[in-house]
């Protein structure tokens, strides 16, 4: 089974990260890198996204394609990255997600076949 883990940032987490010293932030990144290394046999692919202020949205359901600035939903919780894992079942995906050391929310979705 393939699952996508969607990493979700919150405002609190962003400001916590921003408030860190250089050294603390380097340690936080080390923990994330370590997590990817620990699960490298299960992670087939991963992507980090730049923050929502870099997003552009195209809407195709209003006649002409409509291009707007910003993410498609304005929210306090934003997706900041993905990892695709290949595991046996949901419990295994949950075990990987549970040890994620950074942003506070992870959504798990099975990949459609």
């Amino acid at each position: 089974m393939k699952y996508v883990l969607m990493f979700v940032d919150t405002e609190e987490f962003a400001s916590e990260l921003a408030g860190m010293s250089e050294l603390e932030r380097a340690r936080a990144y080390d923990r994330v890198n370590q997590w990817f290394a620990d699960h490298s046999d299960k992670i087939t692919h991963h992507t980090h996204l730049l923050p929502p202020n870099t997003a552009t949205t195209v809407r195709l359901d209003r006649g002409e394609p409509l291009v707007t600035d910003g993410p498609f939903v304005e929210g306090k919780e934003v997706i900041s990255g993905f990892a695709v894992v290949e595991v046996d079942d949901l419990d295994e995906a949950l075990a990987i997600a549970r040890s994620w050391p950074a942003c506070p929310v992870v959504e798990i979705r099975p990949v459609g076949s």
């Binding site: 089974m1 046996d88 079942d89 949901l90 419990d91 075990a95 798990i108 099975p110």
Partner: peptide, 14 residues
Amino acid sequence: SDAAIPYRIPGPDE
């Protein structure tokens, strides 16, 4: 069935 919730007794951690 879609999310492959296992038919299993959870391990000691869980």
